[in-house]
Amino acid sequence: MRVLLRNPRRELELAGPLTVTKLLGRLDLNRESVLVVRGDTLVPGDTVLDDDDVVEIRPVISGGSA
């Protein structure tokens, strides 16, 4: 599967099948801090991603304080 990451932008290729929760664990990402987007919708933690999936892992933490 193709995984798009931001800040900095990069792409990873990982072998499926893999659940979203496992994918985040493998990348050492906190599930509170990201959304996993596939097409125009979201995929929850128990979704199994296959080799031909393309997902974006989108950070949701904004840093502005004012």
């Binding site: 509170e32 801090s33 959304l35 125009d40 919708t41 979201l42 949701v60 933490i61």
Partner: peptide
């Protein structure tokens, strides 16, 4: 709403 929720709201 948490920020994961506001981001999800925008996506959806």
């Amino acid at each position: 709403l948490g920020e994961r929720e506001t981001a999800a709201y925008c996506v959806l």
